[in-house]
Simulated scan of single mutants.
Amino acid sequence: MLAAYAASTSPTDPLSGLVVGERPAPEPRESWTVVDVRAASLNHHDLWSLRGVGLPDEALPMILGTDAAGVTPDGREVVVHGVIGADGHGVGPRERRTLLSEKYPGTLAEQVAVPTANLIDKPASLSFAEAACLPTAWLTAYSLLFRAADLRPGNSVLVQGAGGGVSSAAIALGVAAGLEVFATSRSAEKRERAAALGATTLEPGARLPRKVDAVVETVGRATWAHSAASVRPGGTIAVAGATTGDADAAQLTRIFFQEIRVQGVTMGRREDLAALLAFLGAHDLRPTIALEVPLAETARGIELLAEGTHFGKVVVLP
């Protein structure tokens, strides 16, 4: 089958190790299902994997991708939850948690095998491309807002770095849930897009009119000090990434003195994904898709991801 995979890794030239070519099709195994992939989406996880972060040489070659929507052999239309292990479904109760494309081949292929329990029915209201955007970025945003930060209608949140998949999802979900949403971006165009979703937008580092109940942080070094300064005493900084690297200073004095809670998030649980799908249906929300590319042109999509100039998700169509 055709697949996009990491044949090698490079911290400085990640795309040099990306190959689109033939790989063995997944074989049936007990408690797992082989899904015909109709659409997959890209995440920074794919870029980090090509840089060798979390993907050792002994795991190569590895099919990339954590997100997909597709069809099972019996015709069921599904969304794939890409977290494997930790609860025993299909892999045994003692296996540590991994994401697809770390230990098991990922979704940037014509087919992917996953534990059957990891399949969620795709709502008929969503296209395969839209559904493929949800399991990492939108699920992470949902978990950041409503599980990590425990936000409720009327609360306020700052979303750092508007434009990426997680941040654009957090803005849309937050506005739909009745939150007061602030968002930052260096790009005037991205600020306009965020404002169109319902956010009050600011330039990076700008002083907010008041401190917020929570901050959604996926940027890291470039925004961490601003996040710590912008959250109210007793508030939460919910963290799901550090695309600019770890913070130079952790702001520990501010964090302990203001009793700020820092909560990490990696995607979310299957039940969270099901709740997210129900939330989208109830509010008639659709993911923002920046670009769709055929599987053969996966490199073009990852290049856009690396540039960071897009707003929304990049979708790959086998």
Rank of each mutant, 00 (worst) to 15 (best):
A141L: 00
A132M: 01
M267F: 12
H310D: 11
F128A: 05
A109N: 08
I120A: 15
R191I: 07
H81D: 15
L208M: 03
D150C: 11
A177K: 06
S230D: 01
A170S: 13
A137P: 00
L208N: 03
R232Q: 14
G154K: 12
S185G: 13
L202Q: 09
S10R: 00
D246H: 10
R191V: 03
L18G: 06
G70P: 07
P294A: 09
E192H: 08
V112I: 05
A188C: 02
I84P: 10
G70A: 08
D13T: 11
A162T: 05
R152W: 04
E189R: 09
L134A: 09
R254D: 09
R221G: 07
A7Q: 11
A183E: 05
T98Y: 04
A242D: 00
G308R: 12
A177L: 04
N43Y: 11
T72H: 08
R51C: 08
I302M: 13
S143W: 00
P115K: 11
A222K: 02
L202K: 09
K103T: 10
V79S: 14
E22C: 02
G301F: 06
F279G: 10
T98F: 03
S10P: 00
P204Y: 12
P24V: 10
P287L: 12
E130D: 10
S156D: 03
T266R: 10
D74L: 04
T244V: 10
H283R: 08
P287Y: 04
R269V: 14
P204Q: 13
